[in-house]
């Protein structure tokens, strides 16, 4: 290892190692990338804390069906399997966005963004379809406390995915117009963290809400 690794230098950071002093590096774009990324990481963790409250509510209320339908009678395992596949694949393509950005390849990065967006959109369509089917069966959020907590938790995740898709579209436009600027790269990193976090939350959702709910 001949590369001086000051802990900041990755291909996302501007080339400023070797000849620069470490003090300078901490005030440069590399340090900003670490600080912005870390701040966003803290935000995501607080977002997960918020999700944990929804999970706790759902865990408490999952038997409060008020004589209405139970989770195992309502939820389609096949549908949630498709949703999970979409989100997992999109997590992979989201990683490719970052690799493409580090290699400064515009076409590659944009293609990965498109793939991530399409998979996210498919996930959202499947979820909206599931919700509308439930509501048309009379199993809407007002039917029972269980269904309220179900729609709140899964809907909250879906709202995050929707916001993520808006962000993704914005990033495609910004990247196209402004190119691989430092601030664009920082935003791509934050988007990457956000999208991976959504998949981690989804792992908990499909396990605890759908699969454990089905096994009960």
């Amino acid at each position: 290892m001949t590369v001086v690794n000051d802990g900041l230098s990755t291909n996302l950071t501007p080339v400023e190692h070797h000849h620069e002093r470490h003090d300078d590096a901490h005030h440069g774009a590399g340090a900003k990338l670490v600080i912005v990324g870390y701040g966003f990481w803290i935000f995501l963790l607080s977002d997960i804390v918020m999700f944990s409250a929804f999970f706790a509510a759902h865990a408490v209320l999952q038997d409060a069906t008020d004589g209405g339908p139970k989770g195992s009678e309502l939820l389609s395992i096949r549908n949630v399997a498709y949703e999970t596949a979409c989100l997992l694949l999109s997590s992979f393509t989201c990683g490719l966005i970052l690799v493409g950005a580090e290699a400064r390849r515009m076409a590659w990065t944009q293609a990965a963004l498109v793939a991530t967006g399409l998979l996210g959109l498919t996930f959202l369509v499947l979820e909206v379809r599931e919700f509308s089917e439930l509501i048309s069966q009379g199993a809407g959020p007002q039917r029972s406390a269980f269904l309220s907590s179900f729609f709140a938790l899964v809907g909250c995740h879906g709202a995050h995915v929707s916001v993520g898709l808006l962000w993704l579209g914005t990033m495609m436009a910004q990247l196209f117009v402004k190119g691989f600027r430092d601030d664009i790269l920082r935003r791509l990193l934050c988007f990457n963290l956000f999208w991976h976090m959504l998949d981690i939350v989804w792992v908990a959702v499909f396990t605890l809400v759908y699969l454990v709910g089905d096994a009960r």
Binding site: T10, L12, L33, G37, F40, W41
Partner: peptide
Amino acid sequence: LGVAPGLND
């Protein structure tokens, strides 16, 4: 400062 989260070091 360490490495930014989400980045390979």
